[in-house]
Amino acid sequence: MPRKLNHNFIRRLWGFGFVLPAIIYFAWFSIYPMLNAFYISLTKYNLLRPPSYIGLDNYRSFPHDEYFLNAMRATLTFVAGSVIPLLFVSLFCAFLLQRWKYFSNTISMVLYSPMVISVVVASIVWRLLFHPLGLVNTFTQSLWGRTYLWLSDRTYAQLAMIIVMIWRNLGYYTILWLSGLKSIPASFYEAAEIDGASEAQRLRYISLPLLKPTMAFILAISTISAFKSFELQYVLTEGGPNDATNVIALSIYRLGLKHLQMGKASALSVLMFLIIMVLTLVQLRVVRAEDISFE
């Protein structure tokens, strides 16, 4: 009996040993930096002198801080402007793709293809397309006789970001909607058809209500990814013109690592963390970890 116990103990020790490198790694490179971000956010720190504790002053300055208010405005514009159209356009595409029988796999792969290249490459290509003499302006000129300063006008620069975001993510969300649609049993539709429901009625009373979990999931992940956006703004406009596209992640980078205002940048990080945490908790509630299955 003691021998058996001993045996079990050693086996458990092995199990713990297998997980130990991961524990050390996450403690060192995720949790410690996160705690440190909280601490630095309570200090004034410019790398040259040791951090000096100033309490909540960094947070208190936010409501009157132009830079901060602008970052919030830029982020919320980008998030709302990309998430809402993406949600509806991808749903529309999924409905069409579901009733369209020809080459539907090829079409969804084409829609997904912008996701394959990196954000950096995509942004470099769109910089060329949005050039004052570029392809987009050539189109608008021939369609309705106007050209735009896509990347150097405050309003159009924000619109340009949203266009690239939609272009890149449309196929991904379409595929997510499609898999949601496919999970609805065909017998539901057959039953409705027997009862004489029209296609529009089947859409309204079967598909849409059963797609609610998919919608919550897409809303959560698209909002999180829009909140985290950095590369797009960095490469396309470097946050300009006049900080119009200086979204929160880019603001943290510029404030902390270019202007060396570590304390204030960390306070902004903590705020971003709280936003993302709330969104992630929503996402985890919607998709239970156990639901993920492999073929």
């Binding site: 930096p33 630095i40 985290k228 950095f230 570590m262 940048a265 960390s266 990080s269």
Partner: peptide
């Protein structure tokens, strides 16, 4: 507890800890 702890670091995007990781 360890599993949940590791899972919870999913909530920390790199954008949030770039400054402390840089310092580290």
């Amino acid at each position: 507890a360890i599993f949940i702890g590791i899972l919870s670091t999913l909530m920390i995007p790199f954008q949030v800890i770039m400054i402390p990781v840089f310092l580290l």
